[in-house]
Amino acid sequence: MKGTESVVGAIIISDQVGAVEDKQFPSCVGSCPRPWSTADVLGKAPIARLAADLEGKLCNVVSVIADVPPDGLRSKPSHEALISDLTADRFANYKREGCETVLIVRCGAYVEFDAAEMFSFHQERGLGFTRAFTDDEPLDVWMVDTSGFPEHVPMLSTLLCAQPAMYRSHGYVNPLQTARDFRRLVLDSFHLRCHVRPQGSEVKPGIWICEGAQIERSARVVAPAFIGRDSHISAECLITRGSNVESDSRVDYGTAVEDSSILSNSYVGIGLDLSHSIVDGRHLLNLRHNVNLEITDPAVMRQNTVRRGDRQSWAGIESSPMALSFAE
């Protein structure tokens, strides 16, 4: 038990259901569509941060239902139904295992909220069903008593239609629907506007470097910047203006990276000028020109052969064998 006497479980749904898609920048990058909440931000995916945070503070058990639709399941209604069914199943399991309250978070957006305070509010109100709100709009964060909630009903639609107690949250919210939102989360983290803190060590003010990262002598890293685990920055490179190079990536000789994010397992070639962009393998999103490019020349950009990003994204919740469900 962590500070409460009730048994609280959490279900985190990694999902973009209901998100308003940006026509130019869909909610995912790369050849395998995935929500932004599952991509590493300064060493850890937002969804993994949330799971670790909940597990450490309020919840006894945390489950993540990840949105990884195989090709045959790309149609939205069937996929939504599958996610909803998995959520309902997990909810029923929690009930059987003796959880009295379940926190359900649909993690399209990145939301910071005080789960313990919300739980106290939920208990005080005694309605059996609470939803978090900002000043402007509802958040996809619910707290539900297992005793009062019907089993085997479409979970998400029931949650969306119900009349809950309204818990007002004043924490940081980032919709994480577009590439711009993603970059904003990186910059907000660097500038301490949210609770996301870079992994690794702060070797100089504003410069974080993770374990196993190699930065060659003549490379320059100018704050704020982040170099992820087992990444390699070659000679004469420049990493600056809030750039983050995530784990297992490589920036090759003489390349300048400015106001950009290089996602895990990406290679960026020799002598390039990368600015205002997000790179995921061979996919390049340029935010200034609103362009999404697939670079076909592997000497310029490519996916690294090592693919450990997904495993890293779930670090901290992997230990529980039942914790992770993929909607496949």
Binding site: L272, D273, S275, L284, N286, H289, V291, L293, V300
Partner: peptide, 9 residues
Amino acid sequence: PEAEVILEL
């Protein structure tokens, strides 16, 4: 825009 991005890159 695509050409511009590549030439800048």
